[in-house]
Design a protein around this nucleic acid. Structure first.
Lengths: 195, 195
DNA sequence: CCTACCGATCGGTAGG
DNA sequence: CCTACCGATCGGTAGG
């Protein structure tokens, strides 16, 4: 009998445990035998639920890519639509996705290179597209006079870099809520540190 | 006969080629046979110059740690010493180390977790110390009124995150010099994007 | 620096 | 989901 405390399918359970291992030890350094042990089963048994180790990585990476893209689209189609306002909302949504599952986010950010072709190229295109949209938001903000930067591409990279460090240090039991963190990051990035 | 175009010792050559492979494919996913092939020798031959795969990683990680620490010390002991000025100089030095060897920097930033104990703990302490000094510079700047942030620890993490993304996108043949990049990063982080 | 090799471990499969 | 196993590859060593 399934208990109410464990509503995950075995496949979803495998993904979740694997995500944690991939994050902590890296994809290449995580063996299917470790994964099996963490699940309390034998290595061979995993393969009745998944086809390969890379399939798990694929699901993690592309699942997150979809979440990030969804958040960005939502920000872009908002109505009180100054570019600066949309950028602020895009940052908030990005932070929200990161915080919702820091383990999956960390894998998304650092382990994607272990994908093999053609998934690897597809993934890289998705990321480039995402970055390009942030760049575009910033460039629009510069045009309307809401933002200032000599180099929107540079600004976009730096901005995303600051955000993407979050899975490294964020602890769910810390003092700040997701929205507070998003707020502070946005303030700091938009207003700077100088007085 | 050694030629003038190749002044590196074999050991240094191994480190350099390994750094590039570790950066591109990850430490765990790089085999000693790949490394040997890239060097044009057989796998067994590597071990007359080094003791283990991890020894290479150790040298890379702790070598960079020393460079970063050196740059920070230099910034801290500068004379026209407002905290904000020291911070600006610390950022410049950090960027300079990153740019001087982006491959080694990337390994330093992402592959250190494959170190085994006790090196792993030692390394983590060095990084925490480095971060703490940045935090302290920012906190001092807030006290003197040169800087503003509600949370110096938060600001320090964000700042270093922005800088540390650099090895991911920097290309030596790009249009910006190291000093220009340091300048822009500093300006953007201190002054923000908002107009 | 090479040849030849070690034991261990890898991702994955067959058959039940 | 387990047992038993496959071929391949791993980091590293001995002896020259």
């Amino acid at each position: 009998m399934e208990t109410a405390t464990n509503p995950l399918s075995r496949k979803a359970q495998i993904d979740q445990v694997a995500t944690d291992l991939f994050r902590r030890r890296g994809f290449a350094a995580t063996s299917m035998r470790e994964l099996a042990a963490a699940l309390g089963i034998e290595a061979g048994s995993i393969y009745s639920h998944i086809r390969s180790k890379e399939e798990i990585l694929h699901r993690i990476c592309f699942g997150l890519a979809e979440s990030f893209m969804g958040g960005l689209r939502a920000a872009q189609t908002e109505l009180p639509a100054t570019p600066a306002g949309q950028l602020r909302r895009a940052i908030e949504n990005h932070v929200r996705v990161l915080i919702q599952d820091t383990a999956a986010s960390a894998v998304f950010l650092h382990e994607w290179r272990h994908l093999s072709e053609p998934a690897l190229t597809e993934f890289q295109h998705l990321r480039q597209q995402y970055e390009a949209e942030f760049r575009e938001l910033i460039a629009q903000g510069v045009q309307t006079g809401d933002l200032y930067t000599p180099d929107p591409a540079f600004a976009a990279l730096t901005l995303l870099a600051s955000l993407n460090w979050l899975p490294t240090w964020y602890r769910p039991d810390g003092p700040l809520t997701a929205d507070q963190i998003a707020q502070r990051l946005t303030d700091q990035l938009l207003d700077g540190l100088a007085y």
